[in-house]
Design a protein around this nucleic acid. Structure first.
Lengths: 342, 342
DNA sequence: ATTTTCGACGAAAACGTTTTCGATTTTACC
DNA sequence: GGTAAAATCGAAAACGTTTTCGTCGAAAAT
């Protein structure tokens, strides 16, 4: 019932805890003979070092903290998957906390992770967050932080993102090149950086192709359900702008809401209106028509972010200077039925 | 840069660490005056207790370990959500590990969690697992374990499940009552318990309603992609059985594959063939036609499992006897367009 | 004035490791 | 055989808490 400790196997072998510890940690001043005996006893007694004691002594926990807005989103769960895999490979565990898009909760979670003395923190900021002192506090206390996806440019740390602006620009340019003339944009809330960037990409693409920007073609999707936002705004759009021939949506889910409405109204996609999504989650291959979208590499983002973080942890441990980097992962246009006119 | 410790705030106040610690933990032999001073200094120095030291001393980590086969499945991510929420509410953190459906990895993850001295373990077994000694080892060492979803009846611990057999029985009975005569089943692989149970429920429902069981109406979906399994097998089915009028699929994703194929072939749903899914994940409300399915309460499963686990942790701490319970969460038929004939 | 009680605090041990620094024994060498 | 060097080992401190047990002075009771 009780966990066996170093002292137990020391007693069983008639030697000191020091020797046992050294034998396990590869010290050279232990004879091969006793080392073998220790190893054997460790196996038979099923000894597992008490991580708390080790952590206290060594001042590292081999644990990463992750804070995400929400877990039940395909994008974040694939990011998590990437993080967990990379952490696993490099001998780290992962503690996952959710902010539910609330600033106060995010702050609390960061404090919790500091209390747990995690070796590093990965975080995608909540939509509410516009004060970064909690992040800076962690960094100041020597806990490296890597921001991903929803980042803040002002924070001095490494970041892993996609170029939302370029991706959106490419998407809209693609639509223009396909011959679509009047392109609406279903945008996200006003604060998150990627919502802003995607909007800017949309606007820039129009300008660069001499299409006047029309603010009434931009619809705000900032309610709880992306799907319903898409559905409801599609209804508005159809009522207000008879001649729109394409929609660039901030999210696949919004796009799917749009498709659902258009299908319900028997408005042909893409013949009457084309739809372009963002993220390439599984559903977009399943809906009818299949959705053209931007592939957002969630797994890679998670993996790279974790990798950078673990590297920085190592640097700090060696007292080497750490150079923060901002990685921009490439996105890809996935062309499917919802934009292909014959 | 350095974290402040008890001794730091003791020094700042000219008192002992003992007094500081007691003041923080609500001991009654501290004057209200000094308690107030301590609290203030704690705030200004931004003191956060070192969890490792606390854990070592108190022998509890306020941390739960979770092992799931994979994270990028809607069902598991909602279970996780339930676990994390409940843990959060009760003051626990959560470490999440994946087994990738491999027994060896699952074993390793359990060992890791024991090393971390988590207070309890939640696990949904991998498909490969048929030896439970690693689970029993944890239980024997006084770490309570709660199994959920993919459980092993032989292990002596609490469990949270749905009644797959009954749910499937109800689904097929529903179809029969709706007047469907020839009902096919798209089943999952042969080993997992819930795949077996759903198949048995299907078979039993037929028998109880005097419909002869026809093995050629059962199609095996055991490739990587549930969606493609559904699509491909739908193709086979349509070729082999012209007169089938309903399909009960083991998974929404399989069902959606089926729908996709039938839509592609312009076979009317449900007029020619009805489709019944399992799990009620978001997608089933988005597909056309909307999918009738069984609601599998992932969030509740996670929440209940975490709740039971935390209760057992408390019992053990108080040296009270723990009575293991097996909770069967109710499932519900969600009727939508894919089975409603006019 | 003496004892008893009580209020407020601190010393010290303990949790299970890791690591420094000696200490002791063995081996090598002349 | 004596010394130096190498090979093995252990004692003890330290990590930051929590908690038991005492101590000490002041207030209350005698």
């Amino acid at each position: 019932m009780n966990d066996t400790r170093l002292i137990d196997i020391a007693a069983a072998l008639g030697i000191s805890v020091t020797t046992v510890s050294k034998a396990l940690k590869g010290y050279t001043d232990i004879s091969e003979n006793t080392r073998a005996r220790v190893l054997e006893m460790v196996a038979t007694m099923n000894y597992k070092p008490n991580a708390n004691a080790v952590n206290l002594r060594t001042n590292e926990t081999k644990t990463l903290g992750v804070v995400i807005p929400t877990m039940v989103h395909h994008f974040f769960s694939s990011v998590l998957n990437g993080i967990i895999d990379e952490a696993e490979n490099r001998g780290y565990l992962v503690i996952i906390l959710q902010s539910n898009e609330k600033y106060e909760l995010e702050k609390k979670q960061i404090a919790l992770l500091q209390q747990k003395r995690v070796d590093g923190i990965l975080i995608s900021l909540s939509n509410e967050t516009d004060d970064f002192s909690h992040i800076n506090d962690a960094i100041k206390k020597n806990t490296p932080v890597v921001l991903f996806d929803k980042i803040a440019k002002l924070v001095d740390c490494s970041k892993v993102v996609i170029n939302d602006r370029k991706a959106a620009y490419d998407a809209v340019t693609y639509l223009i090149n396909k011959g679509y003339k009047k392109i609406a944009h279903f945008r996200g809330s006003y604060t998150p950086q990627n919502s802003i960037d995607r909007f800017l990409g949309y606007k820039k693409a129009l300008e660069d192709h001499n299409i006047p920007y029309d603010p009434t073609l931009v619809y705000l999707c900032d309610h709880n359900s992306d799907f319903e936002d898409g559905y409801d705004n599609a209804q508005k759009l159809v009522a207000e702008h008879k001649d729109v021939d394409a929609i660039f949506a901030i999210t696949d889910l919004v796009a799917i809401g749009i498709i659902k409405y258009l299908n319900d109204m028997h408005i042909k996609i893409p013949e009457q209106i084309a739809v372009f999504g963002f993220s390439n989650w599984f559903m977009s291959t399943v809906i009818s028509p299949k959705l053209t979208t931007i592939d957002q590499p969630g797994y890679d983002i998670g993996q790279r972010a974790a990798s950078i973080l673990i590297n920085e942890i190592a640097q700090i441990k060696e007292h080497l200077p750490v150079i923060h980097q901002t990685i921009e992962l490439p996105t890809l246009i996935i062309e499917r039925e919802s934009t292909i006119r014959n």
